[in-house]
Design a protein around this nucleic acid. Structure first.
Length: 245
DNA sequence: CCAGCCCCCTGTCGGC
DNA sequence: TGCCGACAGGGGGCTG
């Protein structure tokens, strides 16, 4: 452990003692958390803004990201699982109880079990503007700033709309748009704006498919009106002032 | 329950 | 060229 505050649940000493010798049986995902299933515990990693996960040969620190190495795990095969993180916002959790870390997350938007009715009934309990609410991980798990903006463009909804004013058609549009843009992001290997890399070090491709995110003053792909950027809940928000109403 | 603000950090970029 | 402020894929905590 090279940066202790990256560990959310343990001191470096206790973390090392507890995880040593455990076997990784499976790696899954819940919302924005990567979940390592260990012999006695779960280890969860949240990359936040600049986290990177990759495997390198032990003793070899020549990789691009090694300069920002925060936590490294020695594996059995002379390799290391490494977590690098420029801004140090990322977190590593170690716990026998998954619910302790991710118990309050909303449903997985891409699950078959997640229906339009689920979405509508969850939103019905909320008040406020649609964009900040889409970012709330207890409503849905996994929608971040890029995908909230992109989904609302696909749905043609103004990010400042009060959720109470959305009709059934509009809720359906948002529901389908969220699933569409998330699936597209996965299919395209994620969005590399700056630091994001796949485990093999290559860049994602989804940033080349952005319609509004990071495109202030560039033409809307639909109507050619310049994309507007505003701030909502302290997050940059991009939308087409003509298409999205 | 929601909005607004600060904070956690480092790096990059634009303006002067 | 150098400095300074603004801003960046997230989210917790506080106040009002």
């Amino acid at each position: 452990v090279f940066w202790a505050r990256e560990l959310a649940t343990h001191s470096p000493e206790l973390f090392e003692a507890q995880i040593k010798g455990q076997t990784i049986s499976e790696i899954t995902r819940r919302g924005k958390y990567i979940v390592f299933h260990l012999t006695h515990d779960f280890m969860l990693i949240h990359l936040k803004m600049t986290g990177r996960l990759y495997v390198s040969p032990a003793e070899d620190f020549s990789g691009d990201a090694d300069r920002w190495l925060r936590v490294s795990f020695r594996l059995e095969n002379q390799h290391e699982l490494r977590f690098a993180d420029t801004r140090k916002f990322g977190r590593v959790y170690l716990t026998p109880s998954l619910a302790e870390v991710i118990g309050k997350l909303g449903p997985e938007p891409l699950d078959d079990a997640f229906t339009l009715n689920d979405f509508t009934s969850r939103l019905a309990k909320r008040h406020g503007r649609i964009k900040p609410i889409l970012l709330d991980q207890t409503l849905l798990a996994g929608v971040g700033n890029i995908y909230a903006d992109e989904a609302l463009w696909v749905a043609r909804i103004d990010p400042r709309r009060e959720v109470s004013t959305l009709n059934q058609d509009e809720l359906s549009m948002i529901y389908h748009a969220v699933r569409q843009v998330l699936q597209q992001g996965i299919d395209n290997g994620g969005s590399t704006i700056d630091t994001y890399r796949k485990p093999d070090g290559s860049k994602g491709e989804n940033q080349e498919r952005f319609n509004v995110y990071d495109r202030m003053d560039q033409p809307c792909p639909e109507c050619l009106t310049p994309i507007t950027k505003i701030w909502l809940a302290q997050r940059g928000t991009h939308y087409c002032p003509v298409c999205q109403t």
